Amino acid sequence: MADLSAVLADLTAEYDELDTVVATLAESEWARATPSAGWTIAHQIAHLAWTDDVAALAVTDPAEFQREVQKALSDVGGFVDRAAAERATQPPAELLASWRSGRVALVTALAAVPDATKLAWFGPPMSAASMATARLMETWAHGQDVADALGVTRTPTARLRHVAHIGARTRDFAYLLNDRPVPAEQFRVELSAPDGELWTWGPADATQRVTGPALDFCWLVTQRRHRSDLALRAEGAEAGEWLGIAQAFAGSPGTGRAPAPAS
Rank of each mutant, 00 (worst) to 15 (best):
M1A: 07
L8H: 05
Y15R: 15
D16Q: 14
E17D: 11
D19M: 09
V22Q: 02
E27G: 12
E27F: 07
A33W: 10
A33K: 13
S36L: 13
G38H: 02
W39K: 01
L48V: 04
A49K: 05
A49Q: 10
V54H: 03
L57N: 02
V59I: 02
D61E: 07
E64M: 06
V69G: 04
A84V: 06
A85H: 09
R87S: 11
L96Q: 12
R103W: 08
A105L: 10
V107E: 11
L110I: 02
A111D: 13
A112D: 15
V113H: 08
P114I: 00
T117Q: 11
K118V: 02
P125K: 01
S127C: 04
E138N: 07
E138L: 06
T139K: 01
H142D: 02
G143C: 01
Q144N: 05
L160C: 06
V163W: 00
A164Q: 07
I166L: 14
G167W: 03
R171K: 06
P181V: 09
E185S: 15
F187W: 10
V189F: 14
V189D: 03
P194F: 10
D195R: 14
E197A: 15
W199T: 03
A204T: 06
D205E: 15
D205N: 14
C218W: 10
W219A: 10
L220Q: 04
Q223T: 05
R225I: 00
H226S: 09
R227T: 04
D229I: 07
A234Y: 12
E235P: 15
E241L: 13
E241S: 13
W242T: 05
I245L: 06
A248H: 04
A250D: 13
G251V: 00
S263V: 01
